[in-house]
Structure formats: structure tokens, C-alpha cells
Nucleic acid binder design. Structure first.
Lengths: 302, 302
DNA sequence: CAAGGTCATAACATACGCTTATGACCCAGT
DNA sequence: ACTGGGTCATAAGCGTATGTTATGACCTTG
């Protein structure tokens, strides 16, 4: 497979033509004179031509050498163009990052991660798309994003992922709800029977809840389905029912007494937050930087 | 100096795009699958790009890979053109040989050598220029010839050479010349005093004669100077004087009694026949073949 | 569900390609 | 005429690149 000529050698040959001596050309390209001598000799052997007239006072091209240099110029130019093009693409990969994240992650976790990324790598520009887990998969297949964040137990097919955080769902009710003053946890069956305000089917939040109930042989029939955590919080505050949302989303409301968190016995509402990217390709450099930022500054919470 | 991309790798990448799998591409370019895998991985690392989507059912280009393949095509094409051009030149060097030889060599030695060369390498075309030693040097500086044959003691400056044969000058006279019936050799002084028919100054033959006489403190003052051996033989036969010519040139005339060779005591008239070529460059392949032929088939005579 | 394809990884051998050290040679300036 | 500074070539040593074979993990397909 050593059918291709040595581009380094050809560049060196051109440098010799320019410099008038092997020594100076060698210095110019940053190798020693013996290395250059050898390289040129091998090039001549490979081509079967005498390219250079070596004298004790310098080295000049033979006519054949001049012809080869003439042919080498377009080859080297075309190759340089390839390098430049690749560099441009690589720089995009290093300085641009298209992220898709589920609503919950985008609202409550990503801001801190992105700020950490900006602190460590100020020249990475991030564009963020909000999407539920299924839309994330679809975005990958359209190659519209480089990195996704999804919640839920499973890694979507065709993707690989790394768990970067955990989020626990909590049951919240309005302060005047009957559960608001219980000292003992409710049980899973009670939750399943109650009026529930839940996220729509297809969201990671909803999936975790359903799976957790299913482990008790229970199923969910929500009183209301809403498409955002904010809407759920409003509905719960209005007394429509008990809401199930990520703990991070209601930290302030619970602290301020506007909502009350209700403990549920025997129900595992923890869910993994995963960074995911296509299995067939490697994560882009910018994506790797973001993951490094996620891991580093204590951003991972539960 | 490892600034240039791996052309083998790029060609391999294109092969992968074509074949749809790394294994088949590897087979296509004649390496094993692991070697190809590594090569491609290194290429990706060097460019900082993800070029391929590797799946368990084959490998396809990413958009970035497609772009790189697009850039690689002109680079590979330009490089192939270089190879083709160099091959053409090399084939000329292998199949063409421009030879310059002094009159004596061209007439009496080269025919046998060329016939031997033709026997061993029928596809080498030889063009022959007759020239005296000085003209040979000049032909090299004009790059008009690849190989020269000169007589005489010295190797011309700027050239390197190898002795390929020896030729001995002999003194010949007409059958009715006083020296024709001597049993004892004449001496050098007698030769210097006699009427001599010699080659012109600047010829190798003449130089050898003058040097040989000079070693005895004698100098040459020819009665007649002629520009060809044939002319000298005619002049000697006409009785103008004693001729000094290469032994090979008069073999037939002496055998047939038309001329008589006269021995000369204490005069070394041997001269080297040298193949010469520029010191600054190496001998062309075709030239090497001719020298091999000269050495091999007993062509070297004295 | 087994078989045959995909690619990746590991262990090893070889050979390339650079370095430093040294030598031969020529030209120019003293 | 000679020495000094330039040229290039050769030799020995060494690290690494790059190939090989052997093996394993993983889909996809019949």
C-alpha cells in the first residue's frame, strides 16, 4: 500500500529548489541535514529519477527534478486545501455545540452546566433546542444536534449515553390539600387512586412515574395532563390535584410554603439524567467539554 | 514535519465510502481489517473530525467524511498525475540512452558493446554522437548525453568515470617503409625523429602518444595531422610516414599485410578507455545496463 | 436462535525515519 | 598555499509508527 509518494519529501524537494542547498532546506522544514539527505535519496529511488545535482557548494534541481517540483505544486496545493477545509470543520466541532434537552433539564439543570462550560471554555457557542426524549432521538437522526440530555430509565436505541445526574420526582399538593398536613407518608396505591396532575405521555417525567407505579401493579390515570412543569405547578396550586414533578422544579415553592411536598412510601421516583449521542459516531470535542463541565463543578444533583 | 495528511488513509477512506465497509475496503487496498481500522481512526484523530459512522452492519461516511472525501479527490488526482509523469520520465531514463564516444571507441569498440546491450536489453534505444574528449565534456554540460566514452589518462573535471577497456596504440608503416623489416624494436627517440602521421591535437590518441614521448623527454612534431583513423591508415599506406593508431583499428590491415606494425621499445602506449558521466548526478538506469554489458561479454580488449 | 457479517482491541514483530557523530570534499579568503 | 567554513554522505542508535495475527463484542439475518 506504499504506493503514494512522500508528500513531505516533495515539499522538501521544493524547499531545496528554493533554498539552493539541502542543509538550508532541512533547517527550513525543521529536520536535520542527514534526515533531509536520506529523504531525498529515497524519493529519487522511489521515482526512479535523478532529481538533484548535489555539488560541494550546494544542490540544484536537474531538469527532471524541476518537472517533479512542477507536478508537486498542484498536489501539495490540493492537499493543503483539504487540510484547511478539515481544519474549518474541526473548528466548528470544537467551537459549536448543538444541544437538545428535555424541558426539565433545560429549565433546571442546563443553565448551571452551560455557565460552567462558558467559564472553562468561553469560545464554545451553544445552541439549545428544547425537546422531549422522543424528539431528541429524531433530532439525532436528522443530524440537527450533537448532544442530547434525556431523562428516563432507558437509553434510546442507536444512542449511547452517560448518566450525568439524577433527579427525584416529588409529589406536591396545595397547602389546603388533605395530604398537606399528614405526618406519615402516603402509599403508592393512594397516589394511584388520587387526582393526579401529570406531564403528558412521552415525557421522561411521566414515564418514570408510570414505571414506578407499575412495579406495584398500579397504573396511572391522571386527572389532567399538561405539557410543562410550570403549568402543573399552577394547576396544583389551584387545588386541581396532586402534582408529580422534578424536585428541582419546586424547591422554591416548597420553601416558600406555596406548595407542600408529600412523601410516598415504597415508590422509587428517582430517574437518571443522561447525556446521549449517536452510537455510530464519537462525541464532538465541544460535547466532550460540556460533559467535563457537568462532571466537574458539582452540577450533578439528585 | 508530520504536517501532511496520510494519503494512504485518504485513499482508504474513499475506498470505504465506495465499498460500504471497512473490511472490504481493507481487502481492496490490500491490508487487513484491523490495520484499516487503525488507519482510519488515526486519520480522524489527525483531522479532529468524525469521518465515519461505524455500525455492526457496515460503515458509512458522515457528512464531514463526505466533505473530506470530496477534498481528497483532487489531492489524490494531482498526486497520481505526479506519479504518472515521473513514471514517464523514469521510463525514458530506462529505455533511452544518449551516448557520446570518441571516434576510435565509436568505430572499433562500441558496436560490440551496443550489440551486447541489445541482446540483454532489447528495449533500450541508444542514440550515438561521435565527439572527441573535449566535446564530450561540453555535451554533458548541455545535458545532451547521458554517458560518454573517452580515452586518455585523465578523467575530465566535473565527471566521474570507470575504466571499461584498454586500447594500445601501435606504430604502423607501409610494407615498403624502412622499418617494415626490422627484427629489433625501434626506440622512442627514433620514433620522435621520424615522420609521423598523427591524429589532431585534442584527440585522446594524440594525447597518449605525446605523454608517452614526454616521459622520455621527447616531444612530437608530426609530419601530418589528420582527423580520422581511416585517413591516417590511408596516408601511411601511401608512404607519407609512420602512423600511430589504436591496435583495434588496424588489425585487419596488418593481418592482410597492407600495413606493418612496428614494435617500439620502452614506450607505454596503452591508454584507458573510460565510461564517464557527471559527478553531480547518478548514472541513468539505461547507462548502467550498458556498462553491465560492457563488462560482461568479453568486450573489454586491449 | 444460531450463523455470519460487522468493527474494536490486544500482543507482537518489523521497519521506517529521525537524531547525533563523523568524514570527505570543494571553494574562498587570508 | 593553506586553512576555515560551507557543502553532502555515511554510520550507529533508538523510539515509534504501522503492519500482522488472534480474539472478542456486537448487530442483523435467515
Amino acid at each position: 500500500m506504499t504506493q503514494w509518494p512522500d508528500l513531505d519529501g516533495l515539499a522538501l524537494l521544493a524547499a531545496v529548489a528554493e533554498a539552493g542547498s539541502i542543509s538550508r532546506a532541512a533547517e527550513g522544514v525543521g529536520i536535520t541535514q542527514p534526515a533531509a539527505s536520506l529523504r531525498l535519496k529515497r524519493l529519487e529511488a522511489a521515482l526512479g529519477l535523478t532529481l538533484l545535482e548535489r555539488t560541494t557548494s550546494g544542490t540544484r534541481l536537474t531538469p527532471e527534478g524541476a518537472a517533479v517540483v512542477g507536478w508537486a505544486a498542484p498536489a501539495l496545493d490540493a492537499t493543503r486545501e483539504l487540510i484547511d477545509g478539515a481544519r474549518l470543520l474541526a473548528s466548528r466541532r470544537r467551537h459549536h455545540l448543538r444541544v437538545a434537552a428535555s424541558l426539565t433539564v433545560a429549565e433546571y439543570l442546563l443553565p448551571a452546566w452551560l455557565s460552567a462550560l462558558h467559564a472553562s471554555d468561553p469560545d464554545i457557542a451553544v445552541s439549545l433546542h428544547m425537546a422531549n426524549s422522543y424528539e431528541v432521538e429524531e433530532s439525532f437522526s436528522r443530524r440537527a444536534i450533537d448532544l442530547g440530555f434525556v431523562e428516563g430509565a432507558r437509553v434510546p436505541p442507536g444512542l449511547q449515553g452517560r448518566t450525568v445526574a439524577h433527579d427525584e420526582l416529588v409529589v406536591v399538593v396545595a397547602p389546603d390539600h388533605p395530604w398537606a398536613h399528614r405526618r406519615r407518608p402516603i402509599d403508592a396505591a393512594a397516589l394511584a387512586r388520587a387526582d393526579i396532575v401529570a406531564r403528558e405521555a412521552g415525557s421522561g417525567t411521566r414515564e418514570v412515574l408510570e414505571r414506578a407505579l407499575a412495579r406495584h401493579g398500579l397504573s396511572l390515570s391522571p386527572a389532567v395532563e399538561l405539557a410543562s412543569t410550570t403549568a402543573i405547578k399552577a394547576a396544583v396550586a389551584d387545588g386541581i390535584g396532586a402534582g408529580v414533578v422534578g424536585r428541582a422544579a419546586v424547591t422554591r415553592e416548597v420553601a416558600e410554603g406555596r406548595l407542600v411536598a408529600v412523601a410516598v412510601a415504597d415508590l422509587d421516583l428517582r430517574r437518571a439524567i443522561r447525556a446521549v449521542w449517536p452510537r455510530a459516531t464519537s462525541l464532538s470535542p465541544a460535547g466532550r467539554r460540556l460533559l467535563a463541565s457537568v462532571r466537574a463543578p458539582g452540577a450533578a444533583r439528585d
